[in-house]
């Protein structure tokens, strides 16, 4: 059962939110609206992790055709798409008051939207192909190729001119951020990663039950 993980996740989320609103200082330039960062950045990093897991699991599935790897990839993509959606929505809500626009087609935002569409396509593909094994194989290929978008998203702010600012955390030098803000970001990242693991476990449990029901029907 996912009980202990659920409890840890709930605690981590409470600590993270507490830090984001009760401890981290207001930003000198942006004011309090910068607190959206403690949702926006952990959400996209968790989405990267989710797609990364799906990438590895899909490779493993194609090698040995073990349905457990496929269930991990599928669950991971579902939760990853969810976190990508949260990244796009929170980014939009952050961009409107600070940049002055809800949306713009700069390279960072466009490639992130592309990630969302690719993995939405992954889920659509799974729901359309009837034979589960064929669906799993096609989907694994999409998951592996689609993951190439992540390095493109990451380096987009360095390769091209964008409205989006460069990376604060994932950079070779020290973060360009006050220490309590970095700590708050890391706490929230830990919380969203726990939440990711929790949701993936529940989704895989559901997939196991569904596979069992399918097997019984065939008997």
């Amino acid at each position: 059962m996912g009980r202990p993980l659920g409890v840890v996740t709930l605690l981590a989320l409470a600590v993270g939110l507490g830090a984001a609103f009760g401890w981290a200082p207001r930003d000198a330039v942006q004011g309090n609206v910068q607190r959206i960062m403690y949702l926006h950045v952990p959400a996209i990093l968790t989405a990267y992790a989710a797609i990364g897991v799906a990438f590895v699991a899909s490779l493993a599935y194609l090698r040995g055709r073990d349905p457990r790897w496929d269930r991990l990839a599928h669950a991971s993509v579902e939760v990853g798409v969810l976190f990508t959606a949260i990244t796009l929505v929170s980014g939009s809500l952050w961009g409107r008051p600070t940049w002055g626009t809800w949306w713009t087609w700069d390279a960072r935002i466009t490639t992130t939207a592309l990630l969302f569409i690719i993995y939405l396509g992954y889920l659509l593909l799974r729901s359309v192909v009837e034979d589960p094994e064929r669906a799993a194989t096609y989907a694994a290929v999409v998951a592996i190729v689609g993951a190439l978008d992540i390095p493109i998203i990451h380096f987009s702010v360095e390769w091209w001119r964008t409205l989006h600012q460069p990376a604060t955390l994932l950079r070779p030098q020290a973060p360009t951020m006050a220490a309590p803000m970095v700590a708050t970001l890391l706490l929230n990242l830990a919380a969203t990663l726990c939440l990711y693991a929790f949701l993936v476990r529940r989704r895989m449990r559901l997939a196991v039950l569904e596979a069992e029901a399918r097997a019984r029907r065939w008997r």
Partner: peptide, 11 residues
């Protein structure tokens, strides 16, 4: 400069 509405909406 605060935009609590946007913060609340995002979360």
């Amino acid at each position: 400069m605060d935009h609590w509405g946007f913060i609340l909406a995002a979360y």
